[in-house]
Design a binder for these strands. Structure first.
Lengths: 328, 328
DNA sequence: TTGAAAGCGCTAACAA
DNA sequence: TTGTTAGCGCTTTCAA
């Protein structure tokens, strides 16, 4: 029996009789035969490989990766993972993937300048997830982050808050959009004079620092919309330890609806990004580029949703004045 | 100029004149040439590829992955990552790596039965990290987890604690060793009658549940040695919210010395595993098997270290009795 | 339904 | 120092 026939059987394509098929399969199992994906892809001169660059310490990326595996599998593609670590930068991570002959790259929250991303995109299709990039060659799948902060601020205002601060994400992907969303939302509510942005970051530590800064002020704001859940949880912890009650003394809204936010003890009100949908769309877009399907809009923007939990409540009255109700 | 010569230049091996080298390099850059690692490895009939199976949501694995990249690079190998997610089990993750023709597998905290791991190991060298496996075919690099709990208990006893509980990790890798370490340490200190093990887990949520259970008892233990940092932090948070002060009312020791434990606000006393060393040793062992170097012991056990921070302190006296010092 | 032959992009061994 | 040849393990024509 010839190599080609074996190939046909192993791939499960039609062209072999049932008898031969069984025989080949049986012998293959006996010999412990495993197809060599490298050789296979080499001969096809297609790799069917989607490269994914992600931050190995970034829980949000973990969620996305899970969705990407699922989406790629459904579409008959494979995922090659390349991690960004403190000692392995994004450029490096992307290069490896290029050498592996990935057909397209999916970058999760990349931090590199748009220009460098554009240069990558001149070599193969690039889909950026969770960061806006204004480069015609680059596809983007992201949440409407400004809208996310509108949701947060609207919610807080509806509860009666006015002195609402924003703890931002510095130069993190999406940070600029969230800052902008905060500002416009405050303005729309006529609270521009209360607008205040504190330096935050992506980590619990940065949230703790922001909280310490808040605690130095004579009077606490009544609410904070925070860049992400981790930062918010850092704040939460620091505030709690300082004897500040959440949400009684201050309301907190996070971002991402991460596992941590859902913890029963944390129970953080937060803005949710639909990770599964983002992953699906990113894979779909990469494949669309690969197969030359027409693409209507370069940027796909998902609407975020507000997840109300226990860290937001109406502001505590500053002075509880007892006066007769005006209308009996 | 011939293909072979190009190959020589691109690989940077000696055998080409400086002139040709420059010319080839220049032309390569102009053409945007990238070597195809598949074809390269195929032709060498060696992949120089180390497959790593890790949990994409597991921060401890993230740290290890970082070290693995570094170690592999230093040894001239590459890392192929394969993630375990809720919808992609370990067997699946390992299979992909096999198809990619990885020469050895490094499994981070695998949960599968030892037998299945042994079957894998019959196909290629397998190094298990952070879990003891009693299979002659499998190499193991792990921390002396029972020793880690000795450190924790010794520290607490030295501070004056006696009613020390252990919140365990259920069926997680390393959990059995830590339970055992706890029990023997307690016994050694003559505290066997205070031995008490609560069901915990790997997550904050499981820690929160354990804390809630503790809080139902009429009297709190004076200290807890917890399976890992995440679980300890879940407890910490729940206790704090219940008005229990740490370390005044109860001391807490975590495990892993994770980023979270180092947060200034958390500042968790914990048992540290030397992640970098473990990563280095895992890679070294995989390569040793590949190159047929003699190996003395199948299992490499690293000593853990205690990192004392702010969640442990002497127990508060139950009743502060004022009596004259016996010796003036 | 089956087999033979060519070739994917590279490296290795050898010859010029 | 350079070029030639063969072959890695597979898929893909095309013929039998």
């Amino acid at each position: 029996v010839s190599r080609a026939l074996v190939s046909i059987v192993i791939r499960g394509v039609p062209g072999a009789s049932e008898g031969t098929r069984q025989r080949v399969l049986h012998t293959a199992a006996e010999l412990g035969y495993r197809p060599d994906s490298r050789a296979r892809l080499l001969s096809r001169s297609r790799s069917q490989l989607l490269g994914v660059v992600f931050g190995v310490q970034h829980p949000f990326h973990g969620d996305l990766v899970e969705g990407l595996y699922l989406a790629a599998e459904g579409a008959g593609y494979e995922i090659a993972l390349s991690a960004v670590t403190p000692s392995r930068d994004e450029a490096r991570a992307a290069q490896t993937l290029l050498h592996d002959r990935c057909e397209a790259l999916i970058l999760l929250g990349p931090q590199r300048p748009a220009r460098q991303l554009a240069e990558l995109a001149s070599q193969l299709p690039v889909v950026v997830v969770a960061r806006p990039v204004r480069e015609p060659a680059i596809d983007v799948v992201r949440t409407a982050d400004h809208q996310g902060l509108h949701l947060a601020v609207d919610h807080l205002v509806a509860l009666g808050h006015r002195r609402i601060v924003h703890v931002d994400g510095g130069s993190a992907p999406g940070s600029a959009d969230r800052r902008r969303g905060y500002r416009t939302a405050m303005r729309r509510h006529g609270l521009a004079q209360h607008s205040r942005i504190l330096a935050g970051g992506l980590t619990e530590e940065s949230g703790a620092a922001a909280a310490r800064q808040l605690l130095q002020d004579p009077v606490l704001p009544s609410a904070a919309a925070v860049f992400n859940d981790h930062c918010a949880i850092g704040m939460l912890d620091t505030l709690l330890r300082a004897g500040v009650s959440v949400p009684d003394d201050i309301s907190l809204v996070g971002y991402d609806d991460s596992r941590l936010a859902r913890l029963s003890t944390v129970n953080l009100t937060t803005v949710g990004q639909d990770v599964r949908v983002m992953a699906d769309l990113a894979v779909a877009r990469a494949i669309a580029r690969l197969t030359g399907q027409p693409v209507s809009e370069r940027e796909i923007v998902i609407q975020p949703t507000l997840v109300v939990r226990a860290t937001t409540a109406p502001p505590r009255r500053r002075r509880a004045v007892n006066r007769p109700a005006r209308f009996a």
